[in-house]
Design a protein around this nucleic acid. Structure first.
Length: 634
RNA sequence: GCCGGUGUAGCUCAGUGGUAGAGCACACGACUCAUAAUCGUGCUGUCCGGAGUUCAACUCUCCGCACCGGCACCA
């Protein structure tokens, strides 16, 4: 029996699950369900990543143990997955013994290859990011560019994995296997990174206590990312349950958001190469969901509330929308309007109404599924399209083109609506002679609906079941494979049909009162308040720009000469995308005058100008009146 | 600045070396079994701009512009 192993990333338990994680996981679920439908032996993995310094810190803040924290967080994921009707075969926690044992074995195997060596690592370290930064990556303030928190100078002995050794092997593999990294754009990106040279990566942390110790040196914890990647094999019982592992590995698809492509496309395959395990067949990085064109973020307050959406439209509409509307692999934009449009057009009008009108006619005129006694015009065409649809959907699902697969299915749905129209079935009830033809047409409609129900079942499992129920077919979908629709005519005549009820009640298109327009500005921090003294430690001055020029080979940089009254300064500012040099000359700006000088692009910068910047726009702070240069700002 | 991608009807996108398509939206018509649904017809396009190759380019090549992603860089 063919096997199919699909994975999602294991999600970090430092935050609750959100739409992005749901999107990845639903997509993986659809894929898993589709392959089960094909009769394959599927293993679908998802789980949570529970180790690392972040968890350690968070637990300390809450005054509970790390394990307690994880035990609180993990159920949030399992609960949501249940709500989303996900069919994962395992929910792996990295704190589980299964994972710990597997990871330990893997690390030992890796160690034996000789590709792990002890080296000294020193650098600026951000505890939040759990990663190092070079001096250049940091601001003068010595703050982490992501969290704006102070970083620490850390010197520690670390273990390294000789990633650089696998550069050529990786490149060759990516080149030879176009399917390996998808979509294409991600593949190019990764190829680019690999070709520009790989550096060895640190795989341990001596300063962290919450994690899995390196088996060959218990004083070091395995770096959380390295350990997490192992989950794809530990979930299969790597190193112990040989049978399961050999059955499913290598994975057919590692599915993930595009932000974590590199760990999966570079480090993970290299580690597998090192220990001589086969590489996953495909790494698929999907796009992000935006909300009306904007990135979704908590601080922005434009998070899409899944509960509300599911409450109002139903789970299946939710699952349907994100897979139909977005081209998997590209970013997709959500808006309530588009959601309603899709819901009404596709689910209520096309599919829901087709089922409803068909069953209405059947129950009124026959009461049972009629016999197909009287073939006629259009019948063969409909049957042909059914066959064609099944084949095309299969090809598209193979490419993870969920949107196109659904489009194909809906072409079929529309064709059946047209069939009803063309044959004017309803008018055939008037005489007994035409009743045979009527029954045949209705049979064909129902048989089409049965096929459609099977095809859509991976996407909208509940809907598929409801369609079957209304049609009077009691078996639910778990037992209905693709093979049950591969031959036309599998629908049994004579069965009593159920009561037709709209499966997707149409939604009013009238604009609902919008929930409070999401604010454009980010929430203002109320934590980490500073004292007036701290504020006064900044020496802010009025400065007049006397000259400005671009810096070659830098998109964002301008070199400014400014007048501070008592002295002149040279400042490099990252505002070139928004201001041309001419715009600035003569302007009076706010300068942080007591900032330690630094070199940017080899050019000395003696201060920093203040500017407000949002996602797109940026404006330099100026004064509404001219002032003597050097005047203090407070 | 480097690497890659995209730019086609109001919107989302498909597409081929021979002068353009789908769905949605919109308009009109038909029908009435059905969830104001369905079916039919129509609609708008300098297929980003410019140059070149060609009998012929939206489709190939080059240049440019805009936008997106990655890198560099951004206090």
């Amino acid at each position: 029996m063919r096997t199919f192993y699909v994975t999602t990333p294991i999600y970090y338990v430092n935050a609750e699950p959100h739409l992005g994680t749901a999107y990845s996981t639903i997509a993986a679920d659809v894929l898993a369900r589709y392959h089960r439908l094909k009769g394959e032996d599927v293993f679908f993995l998802t789980g949570v990543d529970e180790h690392g310094e972040n968890i350690q810190t968070l637990a300390a803040e809450k005054g509970i143990s790390e394990q307690e924290l994880c035990d609180q967080m993990a159920p949030m994921f399992t609960k949501l997955w249940k709500k989303l009707n996900l069919s994962n075969d395992i929910f792996l926690r990295t704190t589980s013994e299964l994972h710990k044992r597997g990871a330990t074995k893997f690390l030992n195997a890796l160690y034996k290859t000789g590709d792990i060596y002890k080296g000294k690592y020193d650098g600026y370290y951000c505890r939040r990011c759990e990663s190092f930064y070079t001096e250049r990556e940091l601001a003068e303030s010595k703050n982490c560019p992501v969290h704006k928190l102070p970083v620490e100078w850390v010197e520690e002995e670390n273990y390294f994995f000789a990633l650089s050794k696998y550069q050529d092997g990786l490149r060759a593999h990516i080149r030879a296997n176009p399917e390996f990294i998808q979509p294409e754009s991600r593949r190019n990106e990764v190829l680019n990174v690999v070709e520009s040279g790989l550096k060895d990566v640190s795989i341990s942390r001596a300063s962290v206590s919450w994690g899995i110790p390196l088996p060959f040196d218990q004083t070091h914890m395995t770096y959380v990312w390295i350990e997490a990647l192992c989950n794809y094999i530990t979930a299969l019982g790597y190193g112990e349950d040989g049978e399961k592992f050999h059955k499913y590995w290598p994975a057919n698809v590692h599915m993930m958001g595009k932000d974590i492509t590199r760990f999966h496309a570079i480090i993970w395959p290299a580690m597998l190469m090192a220990v001589n395990l086969p590489l996953p067949r495909q790494i698929f990085a999907h796009g992000f969901v935006t909300n009306q064109g904007e990135k979704i973020s908590k601080t922005k307050g434009n998070v899409i509330d899944m509960d509300t959406l599911i409450g109002e439209f139903g789970l299946d509409a939710f699952r349907y929308f994100f897979l139909r509307e977005f081209s998997f692999g590209n970013d997709g934009d959500y808006s309530q309007d588009r959601f309603v449009l899709r819901y009404n057009a596709d689910l209520a009008n096309d599919l829901g109404n087709l089922l409803n009108r068909t069953l209405g006619l059947v129950s009124k005129n026959f009461g049972v599924i009629p016999e197909p006694t009287t073939p006629g015009e259009f019948d063969d065409e409909v049957k042909g399209i059914a066959r064609e649809t099944i084949d095309q959907v299969d090809a598209l699902m193979g490419q993870l083109a969920f949107d196109m697969a659904l489009e194909k299915i809906w072409e079929f749905v529309r064709r059946i609506n047209r069939y009803v129209q063309q044959t004017q079935v309803w008018s055939l009830a008037k005489s007994e002679e035409t009743k045979g033809r009527m029954g045949t047409i209705l049979y064909n409609c129902m048989e089409s609906l049965r096929t459609i129900a099977v095809l859509i079942s991976p996407f909208v499992p509940d809907t598929a079941n409801r369609i079957r129920q209304q049609m009077g077919l009691d078996e639910c979908f778990e037992n209905q494979g693709l093979d049950t629709v591969s031959e036309w005519g599998g629908l049994p005549s004579g069965k009593t049909v159920g009561k037709p009820e709209p499966i997707f009640p149409r939604k009013d298109t009238k604009r609902k009162p919008r929930h409070a327009a999401s604010s454009q500005t980010e929430q203002i921090a109320t934590e980490n308040l500073i004292s007036i003294d701290q504020f006064q430690s900044m020496d802010l001055r009025v400065a007049e720009v006397i000259a400005a020029e671009r810096i070659p080979n830098a998109d964002r940089l301008l070199k400014l000469q400014v007048d501070l009254g008592s002295e002149k300064r040279q400042v490099v500012a990252g505002i070139a995308a928004h201001y041309s040099p001419e715009d600035l000359v003569g302007k009076q700006i706010v300068l942080v005058a007591n900032l330690k000088p630094t070199k940017i692009r080899g050019i000395e910068s003696q201060g920093m100008l203040l500017a407000a910047s949002g996602k797109k726009e940026l404006a330099v702070a100026t004064f509404e009146k001219r002032l003597p240069p050097g005047t203090q700002v407070r």
